[in-house]
Amino acid sequence: MTDMHLDGNALGALFIDLFGQEMTDQNGCCDACGAVNPFGRAVVYRDAPGDVMRCPDCGAVLIVAVRTETRLRVSIQSLRWIEVLE
């Protein structure tokens, strides 16, 4: 089985829905290892039941997003902080 992960760019539209602005060039800090990376650099798995975004440095799960027919359920996990444009 090949590892077919993508990167945070693939979740650009999801981030806009969630945060109301483009996020792939904004930084987030991993709560597990402290690494600071732009969202676009995160490791993304889309073949799970939902989208899973992991820290590119330590692999900790940062965000899990699952869509149902009428809802988007988002679990924010190992994110110490994020930045957004004011």
């Binding site: 792939t24 969202f39 676009g40």
Partner: peptide, 10 residues
């Protein structure tokens, strides 16, 4: 269509 999307790989 919807977009444009992306600000990192630009």
């Amino acid at each position: 269509l919807r977009g444009p999307i992306g600000g990192y790989f630009v």
